[in-house]
């Protein structure tokens, strides 16, 4: 029984690693110009392929898929952390206002003409500021944790109007289009330089959360009881909330606001594997990557013009979420 369980666990672990890689590799072939899968494999092996395809893969497709993978791992994981941190199934980067705060930070940085590094730092600083404001507003002492979403909506809308203000003062010929375009959510404009900055930071944050995944279970334990467990819960909370905010901010600095993924992917994983974060964290990362890569591939290859990501994610997310709320095993926490 026990060894059988271990074997299943190893099989699942391999699947969680292999599946995103396979899906991403296959999706590299889709696009305005389709590239056969054997050429993609040849490219990775270092075998010669046609010059045109090589250029498309290296300069367009791979940066794009890598960004989608990054955001696909980051936003759902941040959503999962926020949900556990606030013991609230609706807590996500969007509903807590973090997404708006980071958007404002990014828009402000674009207005001032910062480079990508500056945009990411600004997005992080304002994202963290938002979560602190939301946390202070929503978590009054000894009160129910439900007010947190209300606080998040209020703080979020505050930062949304600040985003509008930035847009209002931005130069209509040069800066405004890039802010607007950026906020719609797209992987289109992401260059290699952006990835060189973002990938290491996001990977480190995800790795930290991944290593702490068993301990993250402590986040949902009763406030007073956890104090008597002899663990440094404050430090744990700080580490995971900062890591979750960093990956949210970088996702937004890279791809703008991509709604819904932070909400539905963690809940989908809960339905699959239950509440234990030891399993939830790897499942959320892996399924988040698969989901985002597929969505992005649809967004860029279904129609002649690219569909904004948020349109697709809410078209899928909203009905799915309604189903989850109605289903018996659905949203709890």
């Amino acid at each position: 029984m026990k060894t059988a369980n271990k074997k299943i666990n190893i099989f699942v672990a391999i699947l969680l690693i292999v599946l995103p890689i396979v899906i991403s590799t296959v999706c590299l072939g889709f696009g305005r110009l389709s590239i056969p899968i054997n050429e993609i494999i040849d490219y990775f092996k270092g075998n010669p392929i046609s010059n045109q395809n090589k250029l498309i893969l290296a300069n367009v497709r791979i940066p794009r898929i890598v960004s989608a993978m990054l955001v696909g791992a980051a936003l759902p994981l941040a959503g999962l952390i926020f949900q556990s941190y606030f013991s609230n199934p609706l807590a996500t980067p969007d509903t807590l206002g973090v997404a708006s705060g980071s958007s404002f930070g990014a828009a402000l940085a674009i207005l001032f003409g910062f480079n990508i590094f500056g945009i990411e730092i600004s997005a992080f600083v304002f994202g963290l500021l938002t979560i602190v404001i939301t946390g202070i507003t929503g978590l009054k002492r000894d009160e129910s944790k439900q007010t947190i979403i209300l606080a998040g909506i209020i703080v979020g809308s505050l930062f949304q109007s600040l985003v509008s203000l930035v847009k209002f003062v931005a130069d209509t010929d040069t800066v405004l289009p890039s802010i607007t375009f950026f906020l719609m959510g797209s992987f289109q404009s992401i260059g290699k330089e952006t990835l060189f900055v973002s990938v290491p930071i996001v990977v480190i944050c995800i790795l930290i959360i991944f290593l702490l995944r068993w301990r993250i279970n402590l986040l949902t334990v009763d406030e007073e009881v956890v104090k008597t467990m002899g663990v440094n819960i404050t430090l744990l909370r700080m580490i995971v909330i900062v890591a979750a905010t960093i990956i949210t901010a970088i996702s937004i600095a890279m791809a703008g606001q991509v709604g819904w993924v932070g909400l539905i992917v963690p809940h989908f994983c809960r339905m699959l594997v239950g509440e234990n974060h030891t399993k939830l964290v790897p499942f959320t990362i892996s399924i988040g990557i698969c989901f985002m890569v597929i969505i992005d591939t649809i967004a860029r290859s279904m129609f002649a013009a690219e569909i904004p990501l948020s349109v697709l994610t809410s078209l899928i997310g909203a009905p799915f979420f309604i189903y989850m709320i109605r289903s018996r095993t659905g949203v709890k926490l």
């Binding site: 301990r215 279970n217 949902t220 334990v221 467990m229 002899g230 663990v231 239950g274 509440e275 234990n276």
Partner: peptide, 17 residues
């Protein structure tokens, strides 16, 4: 108090330190 985890996972948290 409530717990969202299974009995085993809940009691294991007692050993966290």
């Amino acid at each position: 108090e409530t717990s969202i985890y299974t009995v085993l996972d809940t009691v294991l948290l007692g050993l966290a330190s």
